[in-house]
């Protein structure tokens, strides 16, 4: 099954070309130019990974991550940033990001991360389903 990815970045050129490279690797890709647009998309659809820019207009990546996890706790977020700082990276990971990758990115490495993200998401969903089943069975 194909991994499904959402690329969230306010830089149109970066978004478009990264999407094309991901599609060349047989991934299903959607893009969003802002955190608000991304939040709307993840409410409607399930993504294996969200590639999220850290610094965006109106709502930054950290705030977007918090809201995404509120809406869908299984969301696997990989931060892509041109502004890597250890403190922001630690903050992102503590909040539940899967990884924090500085730009420019290595697409093959990123594709591998997305495959890991899919595995992580499926594991999370399975665990939640098992917990739900246990509750239903009164265990």
């Amino acid at each position: 099954m194909t991994e499904k990815v959402l690329i969230v970045d306010d830089d149109e050129a970066f978004r478009r070309i990264l999407a094309e490279r991901m599609r060349n690797r047989q991934l299903e890709v959607q893009t969003a130019s802002s955190a608000a647009e991304a939040l709307e998309l993840i409410e409607k659809e399930t993504f294996d990974a969200v590639l999220l820019d850290l610094m965006m207009p109106e709502m930054d990546g950290i705030e977007a991550l918090k809201r995404m996890l509120e809406k869908r706790p299984e969301t696997q977020v990989i931060f892509l940033t041109g502004h890597p700082s250890v403190s922001r990276g630690v903050e992102a990971m503590k909040l539940g990001a899967l990884d924090f990758i500085p730009k420019p990115v290595d697409v093959n490495e990123l594709t591998e991360k997305i495959r890991q993200a899919r595995a992580g998401r499926l594991l999370f969903v399975e665990k939640k389903n098992r917990e739900k089943l246990k509750r239903l069975l009164g265990e």
Binding site: I17, K103, P104
Partner: peptide, 28 residues
């Protein structure tokens, strides 16, 4: 300075992706 260098990182990232896409097309 921080704002300008951040912008430059974004430019480099797009150039890197363009170069990577050229590589993808050659491999294909």
């Amino acid at each position: 300075s921080a704002s300008a260098t951040h912008d430059l990182k974004n430019v480099l990232a797009v150039i890197q992706e363009n170069a990577g896409l050229l590589e993808d097309l050659c491999r294909m």
